[in-house]
Design a protein around this nucleic acid. Structure first.
Lengths: 331, 331
DNA sequence: TTGTAAGCGTTATCAG
DNA sequence: CTGATAACGCTTACAA
């Protein structure tokens, strides 16, 4: 930096001002400094900068998955479910204009501690936390840290923290309404793990619209889990003709199960998914599904976080998005 | 820190020593300081620390995907292909004992610039770079930065940089040998984008073992791409009875295409994949495939990187892994 | 073995 | 509008 100052014939303070394009610097001087910067190939030292500004200009996207007793590692699930890619895309895009970087930090119970330490050390200015499991201690821990944070869904136990969510019940109702409207008489559903609030709400919303007695079988938000659940469901209720599956990935598995049994979709069994992820387009037939505006939601999370970072005492708030129905070929 | 020093009745220097468990500190003092630390809930300030040590104790995993002209965003591909999860898992595990953090940075051409800036600013001590496309400028740019780096495969244009790779040709030969041994007479292959060196080498190795005239159809390393390629292949060569598909994800699509045409696997057409990713277990029948030890490879990348960080002038080296054949039901 | 003191490279305050 | 100068919180010779 001294080099630049010398080359431009000004003081370090002035160099600093043009770098942070601060208030008033004489245009002539500014240009000279700019030239000197490119000429010397100067790059500001982030450590020194954030030592004084107390900002790192980066935020973490923490994807916290609980340990589940299956053979797939949590990383496999994260990197296999299109949902997380959409969140990353949405957050990255929203953060760019603010000039803050996004670092993705996947974690499960085994390295919660490491991640918490990372956050405490102040590597990032705030955290976008994706955590669906109700038992996950991460939201509480992050909140206890006192670092700005925004959650991707309503926290299981009430926490004074901002979050973004989609109206899960409304989405499930949309699915039920569509199935009923197309004439299905025997509805059923494949729900996600009920310790995930979103999964519970989808089931709840579906039953509210389709009847409390509707048969439900539990999947685990994976393709294989959806397939297995569909088999169990069809064994127990062979007459099902309308099926709501709580995620597209599970729906893809369910479609396979239904077709393996020689039943046609949507003629014998109509199927509606949830998410409108890329998996919906991988399905045959193309999946009718409830769309969550995931990218927009992630963008909103990013904006909320930036606001909290810029305005320390800001009161938490939540933004709820409405789902929509995307009609394709499966129902 | 002054608080801790006061509480323990020592100087800041001593506190610093116990934190970095430096050489010699009297056991009594050390304990007193430890107590003072937990008592005051002291957390070192990373910015201040790395300002002087010039280390951030974190490294970036940069996943660089080229822009491809399809409707799937690159983030969707990254978060949909199990390969990247395995890399992340392997690297994280290897890094843990060194106490360095991993930040995942997905990127495509549109934000290369941002990422390069991030790296230049010294947020991380080094980078693990996953870049398969031969035209990708990222490896060159990262190398030009002069920051320690390790690549996930042999660089397309020779670069004095350490890398880890698998013997691609040997893997393809394994597949060819297995298909031939089980009596297949009409072999064919679905290859990946040939601008990706690994894809070209797999094709090359397969032809070397199975004959140069073997029909090949190109996919794009996605499930849908594999499916489409298989349809084209079966249209042009209905007599194919042994198929090598250059990735498990594409093989999953190919299996679907073959079965959609009423042909049985492995009886009518035997199929061998490549990767041994979780997709191989999603297939019906379970996929016989060439296994890359991805986690181990990622671990090795991490170790190489740490070595380069700790020993600045260290000469680049490459570590090549041997693939193995995992025989399941599809061939 | 422990303490003292000198930076590390910025930004920010305050004069000029 | 610009330039000194004092922090920022830590590590690390060097001295004791």
């Amino acid at each position: 930096m001294d080099q630049v100052a010398a080359a431009a014939g000004v003081s370090r303070a002035t160099v600093s001002r043009v770098i942070n394009n601060a208030a008033s610097v004489a245009p002539g001087i500014r240009d000279a400094v700019q030239r000197a910067i490119t000429q010397t190939g100067y790059v500001p030292n982030v450590a020194a900068r954030s030592l004084v500004t107390r900002r790192s200009d980066s935020v973490a996207l923490v994807i916290s998955e609980p340990d589940r007793p299956d053979d797939h590692s949590f990383l496999n699930r994260i990197f296999t479910d299109p949902y997380f890619g959409r969140v990353t895309a949405g957050a990255t895009a929203a953060l760019r204009p603010h000039d803050v970087h996004l670092v993705v930090v996947p974690t499960d119970a085994s390295d919660h501690h490491q991640v918490i330490r990372y956050l405490r050390q102040g590597h990032v200015d705030g955290v976008l936390l994706i955590s669906s499991d109700e038992c996950d201690p991460m939201p509480g821990q992050v909140h206890a840290l006192g670092i700005p944070a925004v959650l991707s869904s309503r926290p299981a136990s009430p926490l004074p923290v901002s979050y973004v969510d989609v109206e899960q019940r409304a989405g499930a109702r949309l699915a039920a309404g569509h199935l009923l409207a197309r004439g299905c008489r025997h509805l059923a559903t494949i729900n996600g793990p009920l310790d995930i609030p979103a999964a519970a709400e989808r089931l709840d919303g579906f039953r509210a619209a389709a009847g409390q007695a509707v048969p439900a079988e539990a999947g685990d938000f994976t393709r294989a889990g959806g397939e297995a659940a569909a088999h169990r469901l069809l064994d127990a209720h062979p007459d099902v003709d309308g099926l709501f599956v709580a995620s597209d990935l599970m729906a893809e598995g369910a479609l396979r199960a239904i077709q393996d049994r020689g039943r046609r979709v949507p003629d014998d069994v109509a199927v509606v998914g949830f998410d409108d992820s890329s998996a919906a387009l991988e399905c045959r037939p193309l999946l009718t599904t409830v769309r969550q505006p995931v990218e927009e939601m992630a963008g909103e999370m990013a904006e909320l976080l930036i606001a909290h970072i810029d305005t320390p005492g800001r009161s938490p708030r939540s933004v709820i998005f409405q789902p929509t129905l995307v009609i394709r070929d499966s129902a």
